[in-house]
Design a protein around this nucleic acid. Structure first.
Lengths: 189, 189
DNA sequence: ACCTGAACACCGTTCAAGT
DNA sequence: ACCTGAACACCGTTCAAGT
């Protein structure tokens, strides 16, 4: 039975999740799927295009939240960011993949657009909203990247378990700071 | 006359600045320096190690500022971030290289440590200071990365000149938001 | 429509051997 | 001390030709 694009994306997500971006090569995917390398290029135009689809797939785990009221919007933003972090934090190099996708085809990453929607609902002036979204997304991807690179280095050393909560705390601190700086105070801590 | 490590770093900075990370290969550097590839590995342990030195070299353009008074510290932080941005924004893929260096050998990036110093001077509680530094550095590198990827894509399209000021404005907005969120108000806008 | 086989033009790293 | 020559084990992409 013929290979499908979906199977190719699945395989790519699998290799990324288990082994990271360095091991995610077209040749390896071909081996995994029992086809020749060239076959993959009938289903995707390039490796980059495949990675954009991988990024979108990673965010499928995040369901669209109900539209919040203005008063609840700051909390909804914080909650959405937490969910995005949870979806990405366990996948090695996910921050890098997301960055690529965001620059190549941002419209394929719906959940990042919801942040913009919620900022508007919260009352952030239209002129600031896109900037504000960038600050939040930079923080999201930056923290994930730093956390994962720390893990990667720690893998060489002894596995000092404490590395997981450090990232959580740092991430939440940043979200609180940024929202406060926009004069958006989440109601619940 | 023998090749030196400094010459190797210089050549790497040159290729990065002119052609970007994708063209920065050990083999290309060897060609540029008129030696065989293997020769490079007498001067550096790996390409990664070389990139860490490249990152440090990029920050050499940023001089250590005078230690500010507490009242002036927020402004000093904002000024330092602007200088860092200026040093990196013209070098393609500099954000990626900095991220690597930061995870592999953060102590080689002195200017990023100064941010922490100034945050303490400004009165940020010791428990928050490292988190705060991360938020600012994530914003710095995130904005640079986004700006450069936008440029790289625009290179394929028509060169719509307006892309340069967009990044500036977005960056400054983010810095203001973050400092405000930490209750640090810069005195001058 | 979907895939194979084979090629093209590359990579980073290692290492015996040379000077 | 510093470098060459050559190899090892890879890459992404293209494309005529097959079914």
């Amino acid at each position: 039975m013929a290979l499908t694009r979906e199977q190719l994306i699945d395989a790519a997500v699998g290799v990324l999740s288990e082994f990271g971006l360095a091991d995610l090569s077209m040749r390896r995917l071909a081996r995994e799927l029992d086809v020749q390398v060239g076959a993959l290029y009938w289903h995707v135009k390039s490796k980059q295009e495949l990675l954009v689809d991988v990024a979108a797939r990673l965010l499928d785990a995040v369901p669209r939240p109900e539209s919040p009221t203005p008063a609840l919007a700051p909390m909804a933003i914080a909650a959405l960011l937490r969910q995005l972090r949870t979806a990405l934090i366990t996948v090695p190099d996910s921050a890098e993949v997301m960055q690529l996708a965001q620059s190549m085809r941002p419209e394929s990453l719906d959940p990042l657009g919801w942040i913009l929607d919620f900022l508007r609902i919260a009352g952030v002036p239209e002129s600031d909203a896109t900037y504000a979204r960038h600050v939040l997304v930079n923080h999201l991807l930056g923290s994930i990247g730093a956390h994962q690179e720390a893990l990667a280095l720690a893998a060489g050393t002894e596995p000092s378990e404490s590395s997981s909560d450090w990232g959580d705390e740092a991430f939440d601190y940043g979200v609180r700071v940024i929202l406060r700086g926009m004069a958006l105070e989440p109601i619940a801590g």
